[in-house]
Amino acid sequence: MAVISVRIPDELKAKMKKYDINWSEEIRKFIASRISQEEKKRTIEMMHKLLAGGTPAKEGTAKRYVRDDRDSN
Rank of each mutant, 00 (worst) to 15 (best):
K15C: 06
L12F: 14
T43N: 01
S33W: 08
E45P: 00
R34S: 11
Q37G: 04
R64A: 12
S72F: 10
G53L: 15
L50K: 13
E11M: 15
E59P: 03
E39L: 12
D10F: 14
I31K: 08
K29H: 01
R42E: 15
I4P: 01
S36I: 05
T43H: 02
M16C: 14
E38S: 02
H48I: 11
A32G: 08
K29V: 00
N22C: 02
H48Y: 03
D69F: 12
L51Y: 14
A14G: 05
E39M: 11
E45M: 11
E38D: 05
K15I: 09
T61K: 08
A52D: 15
K40V: 15
S33H: 15
R70H: 07
L12C: 12
D10K: 14
V66N: 03
L12Y: 12
T43D: 08
E59A: 09
K49T: 11
A52E: 13
D68E: 07
K17N: 09
E11R: 15
G53H: 09
E26N: 06
D69R: 02
K40C: 02
H48V: 10
E11L: 14
K63F: 12
A14M: 10
D68N: 05
A2S: 10
I4L: 06
E11V: 11
K49P: 03
E45W: 00
E38R: 12
E59L: 06
K18M: 07
I44E: 05
T43M: 01
A62L: 15
M47T: 07
T55D: 11
M46V: 00
I8L: 13
D71R: 09
I8D: 02
K17F: 08
G60Q: 05
D68W: 04
Y19S: 00
E25A: 10
L50Q: 14
